[in-house]
Nucleic acid binder design. Structure first.
Lengths: 336, 336
DNA sequence: CTGAAAGCGCTAACAG
DNA sequence: CTGTTAGCGCTTTCAG
């Protein structure tokens, strides 16, 4: 069946050499109009298209970007993936997906597989890399970009939003809103986003002479977030909760309203992080900090392309994320 | 940098031939324990791993599955993609993502690119293929599976849930619930899912001597769905609405409750389709038909693997999807 | 079981 | 501008 059409077939039919055919399909090679005509005609007639994999063998460029990602249920990632894939596609690259388990250990195996496919670069979303792995990638000469994860390693590029500032803004806002017993439902402590958001948040509380009233980690998991909410509100409930991302915040709000019968924000204010699409739906109307996924993707792609042509050094990019004021948290009284 | 380690390097170090090295990494080749030892030792020391792309050139198997998908914002698809990617990965395959535009025209270019990468198979999710394209893939000997789309073409495999039965069940349920003015907010009329769901739904109404009270197409788009809702409820509003998928149903419910001040289900019943995760969140608590994504993925993968080994013929698989009764629609009175 | 040789489909010097 | 000549890294007959 697969009557594979090769450059040789086209060459034969066009009465030229294989190289001529190759040149026609190589942007910026010099071919005469006449030859190009003949080759294109033959190629079209035969339905010929160059084999990207064979080409990659010699050019050393697969035009494949490996994406390592741990979960797709948090809407932030599908949004980013779609954008990423589209914009890479527009530049002639494509995304090969590798789902990582939550264990750091898995990452190792995944990276090996990625390398097997001779990917031109790796984007690690919501995943960190061990020192060892970083070394391996560096040795293989493959640029790595951490997406939405920061890491103190000069060999790694990263694109994150300013999670410290975001956390801080959230704290300032809650404090200004008159809250005095502020709880935190945290994500996974191994994540830089969690650490940064919390650090900024705590700094904000500290500046106001407050501390965290309660804190439970829920690992960015919905079930754990619900459980954490029940536990936190069992006795001496907070008057506001900072949930480490929107995804969990929705679950928290649901428990608050539908299980515990509390009104948001009248009884308790809730704020999240990410500003995924659902956050603006009126059913939740969640006050949150925006992580500009589109912008983050754009920077990621630009960064990658730059590193791929020249040998630009790795870069750590932080993008500001504005506070999005909505209805899930009491606002400060205007005593202006 | 990229000090590429080749089989030759390993061979040299192990004091064997390139072929010996190859055999060690080829499952089911015959190598002596002694040789294997030496090769593995050398390979480990050098960090050698076979180049999948080079291998594919000769075996004709890239172990890449091309996935063509149009949108990732409807949560049904990320869920499926994650599952798909994981289970393919477990079998040594990986997913190369191609985002398709909504225009059928785009599909053509995408398929060409897919073929350039010598993918072993193509999964088209929420996308249809023209006759021409189907022929091209068939000619190239590449199996195609339509995921969540049906098409009357024996050369194409497909995996769908039973959309006709689902639509029918929804209609029966709504009718039994005493509804007499039932509206439909449709998706995109070009989608088989839309056609089947609507056909089943209309059949159910018909059996009860009813017809659609109103119908507006919203192309699976949130903004259009909101607009359609406003329009449909402007005059002579329905007492129940069947929204073509959950994703739009959430938007519809939001407009109903927060803009129009209607109570769901007291003033109007709403039902959707898919049973994505959000449907079970108490804020929506949406009555819907379950599309068993996990099962659909499993069947898709099994189908693909079978076609990839032997030359099993294409297969059209339909999986039943049960009604999920929740709180967004009035239930029939128990007059038992 | 093992090595030598051939070649997958393509591009990149190199002469002409 | 064009064809010839070498391979890219790997697997696979084919002898031995």
């Amino acid at each position: 069946m697969g009557a594979r059409v090769t450059a040789q077939h086209v060459a034969d039919r066009a009465g030229v050499s294989r190289s001529a055919v190759s040149r026609v399909f190589t942007p910026g090679a010099s071919v005469s109009g006449r030859t190009e005509q003949k080759v294109r005609a033959a190629a079209d007639a035969l339905g010929y298209r160059p084999n990207v994999l064979a080409r990659s063998l010699i050019t050393g460029q697969s035009r494949i970007i490996g994406l390592m990602v741990a979960y797709l249920d948090n809407l932030f990632y599908p949004e980013a993936l779609e954008e990423l894939s589209r914009s890479l596609q527009a530049r002639g690259y494509h995304v090969l997906v590798f789902m990582a388990g939550n264990k750091a250990e898995d990452a190792s195996g995944i990276i090996e597989e990625l390398l097997d496919y001779q990917v031109d670069a790796i984007i690690a979303a919501s995943v960190s890399l061990s020192n060892d792995l970083t070394t391996r990638c560096a040795a293989a000469g493959i640029p790595v970009v951490l997406f939405n994860r920061g890491q103190d390693d000069g060999r790694l590029s990263s694109v994150t939003s300013d999670n410290v500032a975001g956390g801080r803004a959230l704290a300032d806002f809650l404090v200004a809103g008159g809250h005095r017993k502020i709880g935190h439902i945290a994500g996974w402590d191994g994540a830089s986003t969690q650490r940064d958001r919390e650090a900024g948040f705590r700094a904000g509380l500290h500046a106001a002479g407050q501390t965290l009233h309660a804190r439970i980690a829920a690992d960015f998991d919905l079930t754990k977030a619900r459980q954490a909410t029940r536990e936190m509100f069992r006795a001496d409930p907070p008057d506001a909760v900072f949930v480490a991302n929107d995804h969990m915040a929705f679950a928290v709000m649901d428990v608050l309203r539908f299980e515990l019968g509390l009104r948001v924000p009248d009884d308790v204010s809730v704020v999240g992080y990410d500003d995924v699409a659902i956050a603006s739906w009126p059913a939740y109307d969640l006050t949150t900090v925006r992580q500009p996924a589109r912008q983050m993707v754009r920077r990621t792609v630009d960064l990658l392309m730059a590193r791929l042509d020249g040998d630009r050094p790795p870069e750590q990019i932080t993008i500001p994320g504005p506070l999005r004021l909505r209805g899930s948290a009491k606002r400060p009284k205007d005593d202006a």
